[in-house]
């Protein structure tokens, strides 16, 4: 990546971190389910920019860990590991760059993040004696649905504006384009 790309990605990561740490608590209640960081990580991998994804996970995670009002449970580690999982899954399991593939990646990342939250809760509250507050498990449903919507918007925007991915094969051609 070029220097300007690193600067742009760092700026985006800071914006994501400030949104999740500072702005989210002040916005109207329905924004609580909009968590754009993980869909953005998936988006970076779809654009074949793994460095951008890891940089985003690190920078935005550090912002949240430092200035969130409630303990964030070392979210930097969670997001870095989520980026690693997305990297491995998109490389070896979901190899095509499709809308459904991006949905599966987002779903995998969010479920992995949920498992990490449970692990963090056990470690913080029972092993370390510190307070870590988790959200109700039922919140995962709207968060996942909005994640799917977000990645769909990003994917379709790139497809329509850049034609970087093919989302369909015309019906007049055969299944394999012959």
């Amino acid at each position: 990546m070029r220097i300007t790309s690193y600067i742009a990605v760092t700026g985006a990561a800071l914006a994501l971190g400030y949104y999740e740490a500072s702005m989210l608590g002040s916005l109207p209640g329905y924004f609580i389910f909009f968590r754009p960081t993980i869909p953005f990580l998936v988006f970076c991998f779809l654009l074949k920019r793994p460095q951008a994804a890891y940089l985003t996970a690190a920078v935005s995670g550090i912002v949240v860990d430092l200035i969130a009002a409630t303990p964030s449970g070392f979210i930097t580690a969670r997001w870095l590991l989520a980026a690693l999982i997305i990297d491995m899954v998109q490389e070896y399991a979901i190899t095509n760059k499709s809308l459904y593939g991006s949905w599966l990646l987002v779903l995998t990342a969010r479920l992995f993040d949920g498992l990490m939250i449970i692990l963090t809760y056990i470690i913080f509250n029972y092993l370390m004696g510190r307070l870590f507050i988790t959200e109700p498990a039922v919140f995962m449903i709207p968060i996942v649905l909005i994640d799917l919507f977000t990645i769909s918007v990003l994917f379709l925007a790139v497809t329509l504006l850049t034609k970087r991915f093919l989302t369909f094969i015309p019906f007049e051609k055969g299944r394999y384009g012959s």
Binding site: M23, L24, P28, I62, I67
Partner: peptide, 25 residues
């Protein structure tokens, strides 16, 4: 030290959220 650097923008982000809340209401 990092918190000190990040605080001013955090304050701005919080205010932006409050403005959106007020307008939504």
């Amino acid at each position: 030290y990092a918190r000190r650097l990040l605080s001013p923008l955090g304050s701005l982000a919080t205010r932006a959220g409050v403005v959106v809340s007020r307008e939504a209401k």
